[in-house]
Design a protein around this nucleic acid. Structure first.
Length: 767
DNA sequence: ATATCCGAGATTTTT
DNA sequence: TCTCGGATAT
């Protein structure tokens, strides 16, 4: 038999052997998906398909690297294009930038660059924001872009005040991006999708060039990505999509689950293959995961199974508070390492929100357990790095306003806010980039002579630097930090923070040298500044997560996707955290939370511990925690609820009423737990109480003193809030003290308000 | 131009 | 409780 096919199960083999026509691989967790995809590429090559006809798209750099590495193993020397969606978009866009009105030297703005641009636009154009933050507006723009709605197509919905703000801001923002010859992350996809739609000959050419397109994590594609893939698979519909609807956790970023659910509808005669055998986890772990995800409606059913051992039962533990939770975990890990049973890198701790990492970090530190936290975007986000790179951006793309603003007074050159405001006004009035405006500084009214001179000096500096842009990147950056005075400023400073900044800049030089050396072989005379910049834009820190160092890994559930660990701890399996309170109102969002839990659980190979606490201090407030409703959807009866030799005798699932003085109260901004949901709570004797520690003091809500009782409010009623103004009640839930209303305010948008604790009052009619 | 003070707001974040 | 941004003071 073909050695390529050995060690593959029947379903995997079938997928690998598939050549022509659309293919959907539904790959359960740990089912050998990457192996199948890479083997399939190798098989295609063996069948005589040319490497240049194959395009493999992933979401992360890490995934792309891994895939490239494994293809190289199977088919050495073949140059298959494996890339992230965004990098692919950037490449294509550089070739055809003219078609969408960009220069080919366009800049890619990261999230904070684009946020800054939006703020300046709103300010300069005096766009009324109606109390919406730039972040909210940016999110609105982004979600429109994800849905492939362009600035001139965008229509506000009358039901959403935010959308009318977006309708004003979006075109202005987009115009400014274009004037700066810049794109944001979303544009990399939007422009490409639009380009393919509007230019049939380009589309046809690319469709035929990329005969075989493979996509990873298809469940996470948004509308723009869908359209791109579709455009590349019309004449040659050999699209192979790999994914798992049950692991779709980026709906909030625009991922559209329908893309994968409707694959067979979109691509006639699609072959669907299910990879259902799991090679990663024990039976006990897989069973719980499967049972949990079975509660989702929007999915494609899979019959997950494993030939692995039954394994240890899942542990389900309740601790007194988060410190007890964290130190117990740290202790367990410490003990396992000390006994030689495990090494640190065998462990991972997952949490729903970053804020929960604190206590775990502290405890691990206290127990001297080495750990690494996976936090995206560090190195390139550092101020000094961004500053220096901004000079490079400006050299590469003189229209880049963000780079201009960043560099113009850094190091300080006496160009302050006033100067910048005048310059900004001028630039917006004439629709020119800031650097061009600075060139004619002498002509700007309201600008002091001194300021104008300083601006001219800056322009001269930029021109001088630009004249050297063609050399090796290391030299370019070298002259930037010297000529700009940036290095000198840091050298002169006696702030120790600046010393480390200096070190970081030196590190950047090293990085650039490496880049020069690496690209030497690939391009004639090395790759240019632009390629270097593109790499800094599209690579992030998560890619640098060291999987070879012997440390415990701490990360959010989102970051955990695609990884696996022998032992996994999932903390704070509590109502309001997992599922997150912001998701509890909407079934689709709730299902996404369930998938998030599913992803977390299925990362575990041998052991899994789910934990929760009775009392959680969060945002300075103490709350009695309620076990996650997801726990009821898992086989808790077979789990091990024993904790550190101390047995909990009371059935954790016995329902009980909270004593009145310990009543959970909710702050006005927090969502109320669903009333219809059966409330479960752990009546467990905790270690703290056994050890005689005083019972937690009941916390007191601010005393409600309204003249109105919660029952005075009814549906559709018009109400007034001292802060948010007038609004209308859209829905009501809960009863008594917990009765809460969702109010649509004319100015402030939709808010959820717990009536007993709010100054909300009815207006006029009804009662 | 920098220090510092207050208030609001606070999921998740592949690129 | 903590952090970030805007406003104000020095």
């Amino acid at each position: 038999m073909d050695p390529l096919l050995q060690k593959l199960n029947a379903a995997q083999r079938e997928a690998v052997l598939h050549v022509d026509g659309p293919l959907l691989i539904l790959a359960g967790p740990g089912s050998g998906k990457t192996r199948v995809v890479t083997h399939r590429i190798a098989h295609l090559l063996k069948q005589g398909v040319h490497a240049s006809q194959i395009l493999a798209l992933t979401f992360t750099n890490k995934a792309a690297q891994e895939m490239r590495r494994r293809v190289e193993q199977l088919a050495p020397g073949e140059r298959v294009w494996v890339s992230t969606f965004h990098r692919f978009g950037a490449r294509l866009l550089r070739e055809r930038a003219d078609l969408v009105g960009l220069g080919q030297n366009f800049t890619i703005y990261d999230t904070s660059d684009s946020r800054q641009t939006l703020k300046r636009v709103i300010e300069a154009e005096k766009i009324p924001t109606m109390h919406y933050t730039a972040d909210r507006i940016a999110a609105g723009i982004s979600s429109a872009k994800n849905k492939l709605i362009t600035a001139d197509e965008y229509q506000p919905r009358s039901s959403s005040p935010l959308s009318s703000v977006v309708a004003r801001a979006y075109p202005a923002y987009q115009e400014r991006l274009l004037a700066s010859s810049a794109v944001d992350f979303d544009d990399l996809l939007l422009h490409v999708a639009k380009l393919l739609k509007d230019n049939p000959e380009v589309r046809a050419e690319l469709d035929s060039r990329f005969r075989y397109v493979l996509v990873d994590e298809y469940q996470d594609t948004n509308r723009a990505q869908y359209v791109i893939l579709r455009a590349l698979s019309l004449d040659y519909p050999n699209l192979a999509a790999t994914g798992d609807p049950d692991q779709s956790i980026y709906g909030w970023r625009g991922a559209d689950l329908n893309n994968i659910l409707d694959f067979e509808k979109d691509y006639g005669q699609a072959k669907v293959i299910r990879l259902e055998q799991n090679y990663r986890s024990t039976k006990a772990i897989l069973r719980a995961a499967d049972m949990l995800i079975g509660h989702n409606q929007r999915r494609k059913k899979k019959a997950l199974f494993t030939e692995n051992d039954e394994g240890a039962p899942i542990r389900l533990v309740t601790y007194a508070d988060q410190d007890a939770e964290a130190s117990a975990i740290a202790q367990q890990i410490r003990a396992a390492i000390d006994s030689g049973e495990r090494k640190a890198s065998d462990f991972a701790v997952f949490y729903r929100i970053n804020a929960l990492s604190r206590s775990v970090e502290r405890a691990l530190r206290a127990h001297r357990v080495p750990f690494q936290m996976v936090r995206g975007q560090e190195f390139y986000q550092r101020k000094e790095i961004k500053d220096v790179l901004a000079y490079c951006q400006l050299i590469n793309n003189p229209k880049d306003d963000v780079a201009f603003v960043r560099t113009v007074n850094s190091p300080t050159r006496g160009i302050g806010k006033k100067t910048l405001d005048a310059l900004n006004d001028h630039a917006y009035r004439y629709g020119t980039p800031l650097l061009d405006a600075a060139r004619e500084a002498g002509l700007i009214e309201g600008l002091a002579k001194r300021s104008a001179t300083k601006l001219s000096q800056f322009v001269a500096l930029v021109e001088k630097l630009a004249s050297r842009a063609a050399g090796p990147v290391e030299e370019v950056i070298g002259s930037v930090i010297t000529e700009s005075g940036y290095r000198q400023r840091l050298v002169d400073s006696d702030d120790e923070e600046d010393a480390s900044r200096l070190a970081n800049i030196e590190e950047l030089l090293t990085d650039a040298r490496q880049f020069d050396e690496e690209s030497e072989g690939e391009f004639e005379g090395g790759a240019g500044l632009e390629e270097y910049l593109e790499r800094t834009w599209l690579v992030n820190e998560t890619d640098n997560w060291e999987d070879d160092s012997d440390k415990v890994t701490l990360m959010t559930l989102h970051a955990a996707k695609g990884l696996e660990f022998p032992v996994v701890y999932l903390v704070a399996v509590e109502d309001g955290i997992l599922p997150h309170e912001r998701s509890s109102m909407d079934t689709q969002q709730l299902e996404e939370e369930r998938r998030l839990a599913f992803v977390g659980i299925t990362r575990a190979e041998q052991q899994l511990q789910l934990s929760l606490v009775r009392r959680r201090d969060f945002r300075g407030q103490r709350r009695m925690a309620v076990p996650s409703s997801f726990l009821m959807e898992m086989p808790t009866a077979e789990m091990d609820t024993d904790h550190g030799g101390q047995t909990f005798e009371i059935d954790p699932w016995e329902q009980f009423e909270l004593p009145p003085e310990e009543e959970v109260w909710t702050d006005p901004n927090a969502a109320e737990p669903e009333e219809s949901k059966p409330s479960i709570s752990a009546a467990i004797t905790t270690a703290a109480e056994l050890s005689g520690e005083a019972a937690p003091k009941p916390s007191h809500p601010p005393q409600p003193h309204t003249r109105f009782s919660p029952d005075d409010f009814s549906l559709d009623m018009t109400v007034r809030h001292p802060e948010y103004g007038l609004g209308k009640i859209k829905s009501l839930s809960g009863a008594g003290k917990r009765r809460a209303a969702t109010v649509e305010f004319a100015l402030a948008g939709e808010r959820r308000i717990v009536l007993a604790h709010s100054p909300l009052e009815p207006v006029g009619n009804k009662g």
